[in-house]
Nucleic acid binder design. Structure first.
Lengths: 136, 136
DNA sequence: AATAATTGTGCAACTTTGTTGCAAGTGATA
DNA sequence: TATCACTTGCAACAAAGTTGCACAATTATT
């Protein structure tokens, strides 16, 4: 799994087994994950605290982004080249009320919104809840 | 403050001082509030647990709705006639990174999105973060 | 107006979620 | 392979949220 090392190095991070495992979990699961999800998947190998810190580091370095949810934060891989300096996301997130999975719809962009005078938008986050194709 | 009683009765709720105070806090503060905000405002008068339960009840009855946030849930008044049966919201929420306030932009509707086949949307939640007119 | 039935509240105890400081361990570099 | 900086685990803590139960308050009934 040299690709994991590449990704970590590309973001100026040391390669450790915890970081490799967290990253690889994101890659294989594909959907947005909460801290609890990762703890469930890797908790026997790593301390809770380490997972928290790994998520925080990945966020800062632009490897993952936050996904808003009505029952707790989740995180998902950044597909484009986000960096320490800035994240850029304008895709839609879809949460299925049946299976509970939240996924990035990378190809769907959030439509432009005309805000009233004085509002300076920087960041957009659209969550659509409903039933996904698998469960429909 | 008979309007408070009216609102509570209209949603089939007994009028208690806690409910009146929570409702009145939402009305006067206008912006979205977290449980912590309410605890800060009313915590000396009511138990933490009671405030949790009041929020839950208000949510169920359609008096308030959830506002997604990247650092914890907030709640805001439903402006239209939401009920036990269903909530309907399609307005935009704006969170200011300076003052930290989150507000409903009642007049701004979330633009329609063309989802791929198979997705059945039910619920939309758009949070825009940036700088608000007061802080700009 | 008094009482009964129903619903809400406070308290205590607990679970879950997230944070911080520090000592020991590990990875990258020369 | 020795060094230095960064990472991890542990322990302790803080914050956020939940549950059961006895008592209190509100509404409905007479």
């Amino acid at each position: 799994m040299d690709q994991l090392r590449e990704t970590l190095k590309g973001h100026h991070l040391r390669t450790t087994t915890c970081r490799e495992d967290v990253l690889s979990t994101f890659i294989t699961k594909k959907n947005a994950l909460s801290h609890g999800d990762l703890e469930g998947a890797l908790g026997e190998n790593y301390d809770r605290v380490t997972i928290y810190r790994t998520l925080k580091t990945f966020l800062e370095k632009g490897i993952i982004h936050k996904v808003l949810d009505d029952e707790g934060l989740r995180y998902a891989l950044c597909s484009h080249n986000c960096s320490e300096e800035k994240h850029h996301h304008d895709h839609i997130h879809f949460k299925c009320s049946e299976c509970g999975e939240t996924n990035c719809l990378e190809n769907l962009h959030i439509p432009a919104v005309q805000l009233p005078n004085g509002y300076q938008p920087e960041n957009f986050n659209l969550l659509i809840q409903g039933v996904c194709p698998k469960c429909g």
